[in-house]
């Protein structure tokens, strides 16, 4: 789900030269091994991707059959920028991304640094933070839906108890619906990011801290001068994966708000689903999906280029 295409590419070492077997036989054996997966790849990924690109240049209702498929060139790609729903989706998605990722990453970094050697029972605490990540999005959304209940929900009862007489209406209000989803997403993503940062911390050589200790550096200095720079590859990895998954946020929106009230929580993945499987505009849906893919591709590319400036690979 959140793990597409971020692994470092390792080159394949030259395999041992065969002396007795013929080259053709090697080819046959090789293909025998990859064929089962390759067939699945061709029919379930490669051909669908190409077909989706083709569909994105057409106007087509799936229930009217192939004959009703009209080639319309770039029309879908142009009309999406005149579509208020699409524009609202982009805007909401940008707010969602900018609002959740920096908070999540900072909190996760801090949590990881503290859990790493400043507490007893590290694994138990880590598991508590990690719970939301392994739970399914529907159950989580159901819980928060009840917690956010504007009149009786525990959150608002608690806020009123604190003396806030007019607490936010959360998902019932167009102003607070998106922040409500974002708060839930930060809560949900914290554990995963903490775990990745914890793994990153194991890779920092202890000698760096020891020599800093000799120089009399305090905790803060070590965090700023050693930990954060040394974790920059991890931060880079998390930035890419988080941005990609935030562009694809769907479950909580579909379950909690259905994009509403109004267009206040419509996001791109939700609108793609809506266009395709509620309005049956397959061509339009496919073109927005390609827009999403291109956006993901560009962001990843920019980050790869930009990382040279701030990522500190040893």
């Amino acid at each position: 789900m959140r793990h597409n295409g971020q692994m470092a590419i390792q080159s394949t070492p030259k395999t041992i030269k065969y002396k007795k077997k013929s080259k053709v036989k090697n080819d046959v054996i090789g293909y025998l091994f990859i064929t089962p997966n390759l067939l699945g790849f061709i029919f379930l990924t490669l051909i669908p991707v190409l077909f989706s690109l083709f569909v994105s240049f057409t106007e087509w209702n799936i229930f009217k059959g192939f004959k009703e498929m009209n080639f319309v060139g770039l029309k879908n790609y142009i009309s999406m920028f005149e579509d208020t729903w699409f524009k609202a989706s982009i805007k909401n998605n940008v707010i969602y991304t900018l609002g959740t990722i920096p908070v999540t990453l900072c909190a996760a970094l801090l949590t990881a640094v503290i859990l790493n050697d400043k507490v007893y029972g590290k694994n138990a605490i880590r598991t508590m933070f990690f719970m939301p990540y392994i739970s399914n999005v529907v159950a989580i959304s159901a819980i928060w839906l009840a917690l956010y209940n504007p009149s009786y929900g525990p959150i608002n009862q608690f806020l009123m108890d604190l003396g806030i007489s007019d607490p936010p209406k959360w998902i019932a209000s167009s102003k607070w619906a998106l922040p409500a989803v974002m708060i839930m997403s930060v809560w949900g993503g914290l554990g995963y990011n903490t775990v990745i940062y914890l793994a990153g911390l194991q890779g920092i050589p202890k000698e760096l801290y020891e020599s800093a200790d000799i120089d009399g550096a305090n905790w803060w200095h070590k965090l700023i001068r050693i930990t954060i720079p040394m974790l920059s590859p991890t931060t880079f990895f998390l930035l890419i994966t988080n941005i990609i998954s935030s562009f694809q946020v769907f479950g909580q929106i579909n379950i909690m708000t259905q994009g509403g009230p109004g267009t206040s929580t419509t996001v791109i993945a939700y609108y793609i689903y809506l266009s395709g499987f509620r309005y049956y505009k397959m061509g339009y849906s496919a073109s927005m999906a390609w827009f999403l893919f291109i956006a993901i591709f560009i962001v990843t590319l920019i980050q790869w280029k930009g990382q040279k400036k701030w990522v500190n690979y040893m």
Partner: peptide, 21 residues
């Protein structure tokens, strides 16, 4: 390389064609 190239493709792109398939 082709495998790697498709890893970044979001589910949303595959949704419509897989549905039809």
């Amino acid at each position: 390389l082709m495998y790697l190239g498709t890893m970044m493709i979001p589910f949303q792109v595959l949704m419509v064609p897989r549905f039809m398939l």
